[in-house]
Design a protein around this nucleic acid. Structure first.
Length: 604
RNA sequence: GCCCAUAUGGCUCAGGGGUAGAGCACUUCCUUGGUAAGGAAGAGGUCGUGAGUUCAAGUCUCACUAUGGGCUCCA
């Protein structure tokens, strides 16, 4: 057996550790490196090493489970002492001490009943054992530390040199909200020091891109303790950015045959009773009383659109009818889930409801999917689609759910669009396709969504007149492309690290006049750009030229334009293009052409 | 909502039982400079809020609020 082999992979892709493999293993060896298989073994063993260290530092610790996850590993355990971020260093230090003892990691098997007896005084291990169907269970031992575990593990602690404990968290026992909360410590481990270092660098990069940090720096948005949690304020720079995004999307909706509408912010509670929101979503709604009548602030925009549809009699000739609204909604999210712009209590959805016949569902869904695709392409986002099926808390017949879910699957399959299934993840009124995009730190966020709804048309008795003059029930599709402006702008900010493309940038051009005599020229140019709908500023503060160029650059404005004697004399501009990091000179006319071209790049 | 942590001028942060510091930003003045920090002066905080301990509290304790990392839940 080679010194560097830490396990084997069998034909089925199952990892077998050296402890289980025996002397003459024919399976493919797994070398000690940063491959996916090797990291799985290394991380699992590092989790055990961490547990051993915790046990030495906190002798009363009891351990639950310590699996490998995408980003590393964690271990859940119970201790009487409080453990904070400060304590991670202490635990890391103890782990390193343990490595120096050169323990081998040994495995032995006992029967389940023996195990139940062995861990008789450990209710967490009893809980783990209860979930294991096998009659035999394995125990891994390193030094005097033993843990119930199915493996795989590295042969000895000497393979565990490059790790870092990243955070302490609380986690519910078994993921159950009503269960006890255990302490969880997350960590990462790699085969090489370089890989660990690269990972730490990546985390730091991600931190620099954090939209909350950039949002403060660029003065895009703010929160205010006195006003309440999860309620964002848009500062001028952020509002300009948001307005541009709204305009781009507004044009895109019009060209795709959507009609703008707008419903009220609060509606009588009876409306929400009819819709089912009161029963199914009530705990997330803000309710209020006006003139002894109960009202609910809207958490969704569907009801308003339905009322507008019903206002006039509709014909089959009107379908599909697509209503869209930048709908402001309020949802009482739990305080602990709020997160910058990505999870707030008031947000604006780019919401639309398409009223159509069942036969039109497939083509409408496809239209939306293609709309989504062009928006994602505009910003260069990777995304995945997921079909979410009937949840526990739901309204409507199973047969109807079945039909709607099949409709979504057929629309995607018929066009070879890949998707995954989220079992039980649907809205209470219908199944949906969720569009998830990946942010700079690799987190996935649900943004766009397409939902089929047979229930609300029924509940609100929505009808149209069919060809044969009979009354028929339309289907409703709920859909959003961005999801919400708040979340999408948060993700965009991290995606671009604040260096928004020209057509979105809050300030697009900043003029830096070299001295007082060039200020008029700069203001004349600014006015010219403003006439073309371009946000331009003049930076004529009493600071040195270098200082002003530096400050302008740091504002992440796409074009910093210097104007001095030469430019005034020749009607030119000296450009610093922050996106391409180039410097060049253009005539005013050439400059206008370049800017106009960049503006139109935001058309979809 | 739950677990842990944090909360000092606009921003980033230092201080740590005896009545607040730095850098940037801001204001005024000098400087009018050709591509990432010219110089000088000045204003601004009672240390998230409320209780408690103490002769004395940003500094210790508790509660609340907000924020951060997770869990559970979601656009």
């Amino acid at each position: 057996m080679s010194e560097n082999v830490i396990g084997y992979m069998d034909d089925q892709g199952k990892i077998i550790d050296t402890q289980s493999a025996g002397e003459n293993c024919n399976a493919a060896p797994i070398e000690y490196d940063n491959s996916e298989e090797a990291l799985e073994i290394i991380r699992h063993s590092t989790a055990h090493l961490m547990a051993q260290a915790i046990k030495e530092l906190y002798p009363d610790a009891q351990f639950f489970v310590g699996p490998v996850v995408d980003e590393g590993f964690y271990y859940d355990f119970r201790v009487s002492e409080k453990i904070g971020e400060e304590d991670l260093k202490k635990i890391e230090k103890k782990m390193k001490e343990l490595i120096k003892k050169k323990y081998k990691i040994e495995k032995y098997e006992i029967s389940k009943s023996e195990a139940l007896e062995k861990f008789a005084h450990d209710d967490l291990k009893q809980a783990v054992l209860k979930n294991i169907p096998d009659e035999k269970v394995s125990i891994y031992r390193q030094g005097d530390f033993e843990d119930l575990c199915r493996g795989p593990h590295v042969p000895a602690l000497r393979f565990l040199n490059n790790f870092k404990l990243t955070r302490v968290a609380g986690a519910y026992l078994g993921g159950d909200e009503n269960a006890e909360m255990l302490t969880r410590i997350y960590g990462v481990a790699f085969a090489t020091k370089e890989a660990l270092k690269a990972y730490i660098t990546m985390l730091e990069e991600a931190k620099k891109r954090d939209h909350r940090k950039i949002g403060t720096e660029m003065e895009l948005f703010m929160f205010n303790e006195e006003s309440g949690a999860g309620l964002p304020f848009w500062m001028p720079q952020g509002a300009k950015l948001r307005y541009k995004l709204e305009q781009i999307l507004h044009r895109a909706h019009l060209t795709r045959g959507y009609e703008p509408v707008r419903g009220p912010e609060i509606l009588k509670a009876d409306m929400w009773r009819t819709s089912g929101h009161y029963a199914c979503y009530g705990e997330n709604m803000y309710l209020t009383e006006i003139d002894e009548q109960e009202y609910g602030i809207k958490p969704m925009n569907c009801i308003g659109h339905i009322q507008i549809f019903k206002q006039t009699q509709k014909s089959y000739r009107d379908l599909p009818l697509r209503y869209y609204e930048y709908g402001v909604v309020h949802r009482h999210e739990k305080s602990g889930v709020l997160h910058g712009l990505l999870r707030v209590r008031e947000f604006t959805q780019d919401d639309a409801h398409i009223f159509c016949t069942p036969e039109q569902i497939a083509s409408e869904v496809l239209d939306v999917v293609s709309f989504v695709d062009s928006v994602m392409k505009l910003f260069g986002f990777e995304y995945t689609m997921e079909i979410a099926t009937k949840p526990e808390k739901a309204i409507g017949d199973d047969a109807v759910w079945e039909m709607a879910t099949r409709g979504l699957k057929e629309a995607l399959e018929g066009n070879n669009l890949p998707y995954t299934i989220d079992e039980g993840g649907g809205a209470f009124y219908g199944p949906k396709i969720d569009i998830k995009i990946t942010d700079a730190i690799g987190r996935k966020w649900q943004c766009g969504t397409i939902q089929v709804d047979f229930n609300l048309p029924e509940r609100f008795d929505v009808e149209y007149v069919a060809e044969d003059n009979s009354r028929k029930r339309p289907v409703m599709l709920h859909r959003a492309i961005l999801g919400s402006f708040e979340r999408f702008i948060g993700i965009l900010t991290e995606h671009y690290a604040g260096e928004f493309p020209f057509f979105l940038a809050p300030t697009q051009v900043i003029f830096v006049p070299i001295s007082d005599s060039h200020v008029d020229y700069a203001f004349a140019l600014k006015k010219k750009l403003r006439m073309e709908g371009i946000d331009a500023e003049v930076y004529d503060k009493n600071d040195s030229l270098n200082k002003r160029i530096r400050t302008a650059e740091k504002k992440r404005v796409p074009y910093v334009v210097i104007v001095g004697d030469e430019e005034v004399a020749n009607n030119t501009v000296a450009i610093r293009n922050r996106r391409t990091r180039q410097q060049y000179n253009l005539t005013q006319d050439e400059f206008m052409v370049e800017l106009t071209k960049q503006l139109t790049e935001g058309t979809i």
